[in-house]
Structures are given as C-alpha cells and as structure tokens.
C-alpha cells in the first residue's frame, strides 16, 4: 500500500542506498539550513518579521529553556506521550489480532475484512465531532482517536502480510511435520513481519497526527494545550517550541522503527 499518508513524516521510502559522502564533507549539507536560520534571525532583529507573527530563533531557544524549567513542557510532554502510547497500544493490539484472524481463517476474513475495508476510506480525523459528543472532552476521545488511526494501517498490513505468506513454504511446513503452533511461529509470523513493520511505521506517523488534531481541538493539558494556550497570548516562541517537539517526537519514533526493522529483518542482508 502507499506509504505517503498525511501524518507520516514526509520522506522518500526505501529508495536506493544513500550516496556515500566523502569523509569530512558532511558539514556541506548544513550550509543552507544554517543560512535559513541566520536569515530568519536577521529578519526578526531588523523588525521585518514581527514578534507576534513569528518569534526569532533566539527567542524560541529562550522560550524552550523557560517552559522546560517551569515544568510546563515536561508535564505536557508526559501527558501527550501517555495518550499516544495508550492509544497506540490499543489500536495496534486490536489491529494485529484482527489482521491475523482475518488473514488465517476463511470466516474471519469474510466477517472482518469487508467492514474494515469500508471504514478505512473514512478519514478518521473527521470523527472528532462524534467522538466529542460520545466521549466528552477528557482523555477517552483523544486516546480512541489515536487508537482508531493506528488500527487501520496495522490491520491492513498484517492482513496482507499473513495472506501473502508463500504457500510453498506452508506446503513445506506441512510435509515437514510442523504442528499448527510451529506453522504460526516459524512460517506465518516471520513471513508477515516485513509487511507488519511497514504498517507499524505508517501507524506511528498517524498516531502523532491524530494526537495533534485531538489536542488542538480540545485539551486542558498536553503539548497541544501548551500550543493553544500560547496562541491566546500571542506567544509565537512557545508555539514554535511545541512544533519542534512534535517534529522531534516523530523523528524519534521513526528512528526507533528503523532499528526494530533492522534487527527483525537481519536475515535479509
């Protein structure tokens, strides 16, 4: 399935191996980002860029320091992390169970697959109004929104992975005397893993996106609250701090999945 979904960090997927860089020249890639920062700073210093539209890089760094010391950022971060982790765990467990079940059993596939395939065309973020009606504005709707966003990519990729297990390997397992548990453990699960990991990577991007939307619509705590609260007071520096933290979190989870993939798929090398 396509890997460019909104919310997944924009990035070329599995292209050719990165061009080898000549040693000692890595700094050349930093020329333009640093230049942009300098120009941004200059524009702020000369008054070209108004403080209440976009704070200067130096102000942003200061604000990051301030909200860290005051405890606002660590507290908000913790609240947001808990929402993502709980929501992700919920959606992922359900996605894996449903995906394996519908992938393995004929009836499971007939019962589970059609409604999931229909529902996945619905942008889950459009459910925010209903979720607020049903679950109020506390933690439940935020966690469920994350869980729902995670459920679909995990389910679809696990299902496709299980269905895509090489039937020749299944025959081999049969004539080699594997019992049901061994077939699952040594053939089906490892066979479905590459696809499932693709689902994992997609779903983490969507988990963060869902959290941002849920927290921006309604929150009295968390990163999103920090940002919306800063908006009230035209604190563009704090807003940018929040955005940078969101970006770093996305980057961090992506790096985590890459490490998991490298370890789980080391037989491919």
């Amino acid at each position: 399935m396509s890997t460019t979904l909104p919310g997944a960090p924009a990035r070329a997927v599995e292209t050719a191996p990165p061009r080898r860089q000549e040693p000692g020249r890595a700094w050349q890639r930093w020329i333009s980002p640093v230049a942009i920062l300098v120009i941004w700073q200059l524009a702020s210093s000369t008054g070209l860029l108004a403080e209440d539209e976009l704070a200067s890089p130096i102000r942003v760094v200061q604000a990051a320091w301030d909200v860290t010391l005051s405890g606002e950022l660590p507290e908000g971060l913790l609240v947001s992390l808990v929402r993502v982790v709980v929501g992700f765990a919920l959606g992922a467990v359900l996605g894996v169970v449903l995906g394996v079940w519908s992938g393995l059993s004929r009836w499971g596939g007939l019962i589970i697959d059609p409604p999931v395939q229909m529902l996945r065309t619905l942008p889950h973020l459009a459910l925010v109004p209903l979720f607020i009606l049903w679950f109020g504005v506390q933690e439940t709707p935020k966690i469920l929104l994350v869980a729902l966003g995670v459920l679909f990519p995990i389910y679809l990729n696990v299902h496709a992975g299980v269905r895509g297990v090489d039937p020749k390997l299944l025959e081999m397992a049969q004539v080699s005397g594997f019992d049901r548990r061994e077939v699952l453990r040594h053939v089906v699960i490892p066979g479905a893993l590459p696809s499932a990991l693709t689902g994992l990577r997609l779903s983490l991007g969507i988990a963060w996106l869902s959290l941002v939307v849920a927290e921006t619509v309604s929150a009295d705590s968390g990163l999103g609250y920090l940002i919306m609260d800063a908006r009230e007071f035209l604190r563009t520096d704090v807003i940018v701090v929040g955005l940078v933290v969101y970006a770093l979190l996305g980057l961090g989870t992506d790096a985590l999945v890459r490490r998991i993939e490298k370890r789980a798929l080391r037989w491919r090398s």
């Binding site: 020749k168 390997l169 397992a173 080699s176 005397g177 040594h186 490892p190 037989w267």
Partner: peptide, 20 residues
C-alpha cells in the same frame, strides 16, 4: 522440492531441524 523452500528467516540448521 524443485525450489529448496528454506525459511529465509531461520538458520540452515533450524531449517533442517524444525518440525523434527
């Protein structure tokens, strides 16, 4: 079989031993 049908994610020894 015509193709060896080895499990690519298990070592050669495991491929021989599994299910035994």
């Amino acid at each position: 079989f015509q193709e060896p049908r080895l499990l690519p994610w298990r070592s050669v020894r495991d491929n021989v031993a599994l299910g035994l």
